[in-house]
Amino acid sequence: MMAVIKSIEELEKIREQARELINLRKDNENKTRIVVGMGTCGISAGAREVLTAILDEIKKRNLTNVIVTETGCIGMCRFEPLVDVIKPDQPKVTYVNVDPEKARQIVAKHVVNNQVIDEWVIPNI
């Protein structure tokens, strides 16, 4: 039996769902930014799986005040994957050697509950 393959028409349904959840506030200044290092070094160290975990956590928790962006190689390749969390009006916090499980906890503890996970942080960069 031929399975029904997903088609682009489904996006109409997604659009309806998304409209209910969307945060209409456009002011990015009040949003938390998560920055993942996506240079060659980051990607080969596992940045894609880290990013996937972060996106999944954002979806599961319906977080609408978070923006995920990327940066290239910043010369700290041996600490990759690197993840920055920048909360509004707070200094940037950089997590090093992140894996998907750590990434999920960073979202839960730091992004949602405002608790920096000190042991995974590199200070002053």
Binding site: I14, Q17, A18, L21
Partner: peptide, 10 residues
């Protein structure tokens, strides 16, 4: 709806 909305990415 932005194409990078979590539901769309999923």
């Amino acid at each position: 709806i932005p194409v990078n909305h979590p539901l769309v990415i999923d």
